[in-house]
């Protein structure tokens, strides 16, 4: 699934209840994060819900591709993570940094979930993905 498909699917759903059901469903279909990756190191702290993220860099190809596995103990957050994975996973560092995530979430009608609330583990996760992309870009040999 790509972003366009997500936008189309969400647009089909008229009321918020159906949109949330769809998000919850997306979260349920998220590839599982292995139990041994639910570590303190992978935890993105939040006051309300917990988020874990395990990044993997595939540097067998150039430029390297970033993959993410993630999980949350809250269902809606897990659905939002699924959206984030559609947006970010399988992209290069430069592609990740070029994405205007606020614009994407606004198109999806999910903009209120991406407000900078430091207590929100989900939002911190966006920052962590971007940091990771920056680090990956900085450490890559210049072409």
């Amino acid at each position: 699934m790509d972003i366009e498909e997500l936008v189309d699917n969400l647009e089909l759903l008229e009321d918020w209840e159906e949109r949330y059901r769809y998000l919850i469903e997306l979260g349920r279909k998220l590839p599982p994060l292995p139990d041994d990756q639910h570590t303190e190191q992978n935890k993105v702290r939040g006051c309300m819900s917990q988020v874990w993220m395990f990044p993997q860099v595939d540097d067998r190809i150039s430029p390297p591709i970033l993959h993410f596995l993630a999980d949350s103990d809250a269902h809606i957050v897990k659905g939002l993570i699924a959206v984030l994975m559609v947006v970010y996973s399988g992209k290069t560092a430069q592609e990740i940094l070029d994405i205007d995530i606020h614009a994407v979430f606004t198109r999806l009608g999910l903009e209120k979930h991406i407000t900078p609330n430091r207590r929100n583990g989900f939002f911190s996760m966006v920052g962590r993905i971007q940091d990771l992309a920056r680090t990956s870009l900085a450490s890559a040999p210049s072409a």
Binding site: W16, E17, Y20, M48, S49, H75, I76, V77
Partner: peptide, 22 residues
């Protein structure tokens, strides 16, 4: 086993403000 964060999110859609967290 519904997470309080999820409860708070749905309640907000209904105009109800509660706290979810520790």
């Amino acid at each position: 086993d519904i997470h309080p964060h999820d409860i708070g999110t749905i309640l907000d859609q209904e105009g109800v403000a509660i706290r979810a967290g520790h």
